[in-house]
């Protein structure tokens, strides 16, 4: 049974490269996906801040749609991942809420049995279910010499997930290592990027982004790898603003982990949405790309001895 792929709203606009690269690498890495038909917004943090029952019900419509298809959900966006999981969790824990939400869903001809749909993240499935060894076997262009800062942000690991540590996660580190990249020390890996504060209080969000960029630079990273469209947007599109406010000279490409998975198996830039980032990544990735089908050159004695 394929996963019900739930791109979420950001992946249709600012996070389009994440959508493109997620779809492109799914099959080659053994993930069968089919878009959840007519999905709606998960509610993000905003609905929860405005109207609670509606937030749960809007989110639960997606779970109901997946349940009808008998599918589990695959959600690349951290906010969607957390909100959908949280909705299911609350409905399981609170019988009164379950009744109310189903009452609301019935008005739309839907219903949801809590616990019947599991919500997963592509990173979790790739590493925890497929295994790093399986990833390694598929790599054609190892990302040798590429130094990456693995950035998880908040909502992929908190408040609680089963597949990784909520403060010092390692899944992305394992994946990047399996792709042949070098993972740099990145102690701020699960700190916040500022999320939607970038719109409502830019100074606060810019400061958090500055800290993330600075730590990556100080530890010698060539790029930051993200798992979330909002993290990518804040660090990439507002990097120039960080530089102008703090007098820094960051020129740090911010990539989705799915883009690097694609590069490592030899997919072309266009299929991975490379070029959509505002801080260009092509110069950094050129040496791993446009490699014609990788044919191992025979190792000669002269190249060894030099």
């Amino acid at each position: 049974m394929p996963y019900a792929y739930y791109p979420g709203c950001s992946l249709q606009a600012t996070g389009r490269a994440y959508d493109e690269s997620s779809r492109a690498v799914a099959e080659p890495f053994g993930l069968h996906v089919e878009e959840l038909e007519d999905w709606n917004c998960c509610g993000a943090t905003s609905y929860m801040s405005v109207r609670e029952l509606l937030a749960m019900a809007v989110s639960a419509r997606n779970l109901a749609l997946a349940q009808r298809k008998g599918m589990n959900i695959l959600a690349p966006c951290s906010a969607c991942f957390t909100v959908l999981r949280k909705t299911d969790h609350y409905l399981q824990e609170m019988p009164a809420l379950r009744k109310k939400v189903n009452n609301v869903l019935h008005a739309a001809g839907l219903s949801y049995e809590p616990g019947s749909v599991h919500v997963h993240h592509p990173l979790e499935i790739t590493v925890r279910q497929g295994g790093a060894q399986r990833v390694r076997e598929r790599v054609r262009n190892p990302l040798k010499g590429l130094k990456v800062a693995p950035y998880y942000g908040c909502q992929i690991v908190r408040p609680k997930v089963e597949f990784d540590n909520p403060e010092f996660p390692t899944t992305l580190d394992e994946l990047m290592t399996a792709l042949g990249a070098t993972v740099v020390y990145y102690p701020v890996k699960s700190r916040c990027c500022g999320a939607s504060l970038m719109a409502s209080n830019e100074a606060a969000a810019i400061r958090l982004c500055k800290n993330l960029l600075l730590c990556a630079q100080q530890n010698g990273a060539d790029c930051i790898v993200t798992v979330c469209p909002l993290c990518q947007m804040n660090l990439d599109a507002f990097q120039a603003e960080v530089n102008s406010r703090y007098g820094t000279g960051f020129n740090m490409p911010i990539l989705y982990f799915t883009q690097l998975m694609g590069v490592a198996i030899g997919l072309p830039a266009r299929a991975l949405g490379l070029g959509r980032e505002l801080v260009p990544a092509r110069p950094l990735l050129a040496r791993y790309m446009d490699v014609p089908l990788r044919i191992e050159a025979p190792k000669t004695a002269s190249s060894q001895g030099g």
Partner: peptide
């Protein structure tokens, strides 16, 4: 860079969303 589309979508099941909103507001 194709990250700011000029037209947005509306889901086919918008009537379901409307029904959900009406009912949730009622309760």
């Amino acid at each position: 860079r194709g990250r700011f589309p000029l037209s947005g979508e509306r889901i086919r099941g918008i009537d379901e969303i409307r029904a959900i909103i009406a009912k949730a507001n009622e309760i």
